[in-house]
Each structure stands twice: as C-alpha cells, then as structure tokens.
C-alpha cells in the first residue's frame, strides 16, 4: 500500500524514514518526495503485510502518516473512455476492461498528476 507521510518543522530535522526502516526491518520504496528545511512529504510504497509494523516504527513527533487511497478520482460522467490516460501514466494505473471501458487501479498511483493535466475531458483529479 501507499503511505503519505508528512513532516512538520520538527519532523524534517531527524532521519525519520531511515530510522523507521532500521527499527522495523521493513523495506519501503520512496516513490516521490519533497522535503525542504521547514516541512516536507514523502509517498512510500510498503508491502501490505508489513505496513502495520512500519507505521508503528515511523510514528513520532512531527510526522503524520496517512494511508493513501483513491489517489486519482475518476469522473465516470465526464469520461468518454478514450483511453489516452492509459499510455500517459507510467505506473499502469489505467487499463481497459473487455468492453473497452476504463478501469482505474488507484493504488499504483504516485500522484505525479500527469493524467489529470492531459485528460482531454478533465475527468481525472488527483488527491493532494
């Protein structure tokens, strides 16, 4: 699953992610991150079975953790099932079912926002 971790000014002072990995022994993949002196966020991918353990190890002052669900929201009424988003997204979030209807598997999304920018019908939006 994907975890959205946000750091406030205390949270950015300490190597929280590294410490949590060491403490829990759980491997995570940092998919996107933006951290500067005052605050920051990181999108982590962690195996569902290890998520509880990792979240426990990461829970500290200055760190807030949220399970990232429904990262992309898809407006069925506006969508025309053109499929342009399928090849634009490099995380294979989108595909067609056997009736050429768009299927969205939001859990693979890394919130890059590209699909929302380029959907010709403006039928996609990204949770922030």
């Amino acid at each position: 699953m994907k975890l959205m971790v946000e750091f406030d000014s205390d949270g950015v002072q300490y190597p929280n992610i590294a410490a949590a990995i060491l403490r829990s022994g759980v491997m995570v993949n940092v998919e996107r991150a933006l951290i500067d002196g005052d605050e920051g966020w990181a999108l982590l991918d962690v195996d569902d079975r290890d998520a509880g353990k990792f979240i426990a190890a990461l829970t500290r002052k200055g760190v807030s953790i949220r399970i990232q669900k429904d990262a992309v929201s898809h407006n069925r009424t506006d969508c025309v099932d053109c499929g342009l988003c399928i090849s634009i997204c490099q995380k294979q979030v989108f595909s067609f079912d056997e009736n050429w209807q768009l299927v969205v598997e939001s859990d693979r999304c890394v919130l890059c926002g590209r699909c929302a920018t380029y959907c010709p019908q403006r039928a996609l939006s990204i949770q922030k």
Binding site: D81, C82, G83, L84, I86, S95, F96, N99, W100
Partner: peptide
C-alpha cells in the same frame, strides 16, 4: 495495447473512444 519499436514493447492507447 502494446507495439514493438526498436526491440522494446511500447505502451499504446487510443485517444478516440472505441466504447
């Protein structure tokens, strides 16, 4: 949904709607 170019499989999608 995928076409080979230079030995690589390239993802391919329409912009018209077949449905």
């Amino acid at each position: 949904g995928s076409v080979e170019i230079d030995g690589e499989e390239v993802r391919c999608s329409p912009l018209s709607s077949y449905k």
